[in-house]
Amino acid sequence: MKPGPFDYIAPAALPEALRLLSDTERDGKVLAGGQSLIPMLNMRLARPELLVDITRIPELDRLGVDADGALRIGASVRQSTVAADPAVRAGWPLLAAAVERIGHPQIRNRGTVCGSLVHHDPAAELPAVALALDARFTVARAGGSRTVPAGDFFRGTFTTDVEPEEIVTEAVVPPLRAGTGWAFRELAQRRGDFAAVGLAVLLRADGAAVGSARLVYCGVGGTPVRVPEAEQALVGREFGAASRSDAARAVGAVLDPPGDVHASARWRREAAEVLLARALTEAWERTT
């Protein structure tokens, strides 16, 4: 279990990194924390000719809140840094909670938030959270950059909107409106494993009723799966057992999860309903 041969370059500036990736002679791949890529290299499931290490580019290592109150996470910012950041914990607790469910601390000390998002394992926590939080991505290529909202970003299993010659330079997460309740729950057999089913919930209260709801699953499809039918079952109704079970029923009717070595499709659908009921209660308690 050793990687096949490749070249490695760690440019000091973004334009150089983009130029290397646009070289059509060589199959280049971005390396940041490497915690998803290097296992695939070791198993020879990935065979790039060139790794472009972007962690030596100072401008990609920034983490902070911009003038609009949005959280900006640079491409080489480690997961452990994000989870420990006081501003993130205060303003984006859903994100912090989800990051803490990624693998193990030893993985998060190397792995990056943007790397996990671009890798897009459908069982991973962050894509679901990015979709729930309406995150957007700055995608750079030689000669320009574009912004892609999370809703357009995740295309399919291990596939995103990012082209091989592009780099996601940052993830931008808008501020949560004050009073939003949240919950992140997942079921995995062992601590630290990818979620067999995971769920990010955002709720706003409107008196005793639900003002708005956002429900996004991971582990139940090729991309994170938002369930508007279940959201609609909640919004405008008094929060309680009736609306919760209607929402759960909507989830059961809509989801078409895959079966694999960790769980059958049927279990995933059932577990998704159970998670929903439990996560809604948790999120509702956090609304103010």
């Binding site: 057999q189 067999a196 919760r244 079970s245 769980a263 279990w267 059932e270 577990a271 159970v274 009921a277």
Partner: peptide, 22 residues
């Protein structure tokens, strides 16, 4: 006795499909 297998046993024994959701 994974979660999947235990749920399968319950489904098989009770003949019901829906889990408790409250």
């Amino acid at each position: 006795l994974t979660p999947d297998r235990v749920r399968g046993l319950l489904r098989e024994a009770t003949g019901t499909t829906a889990p408790a959701t409250v």
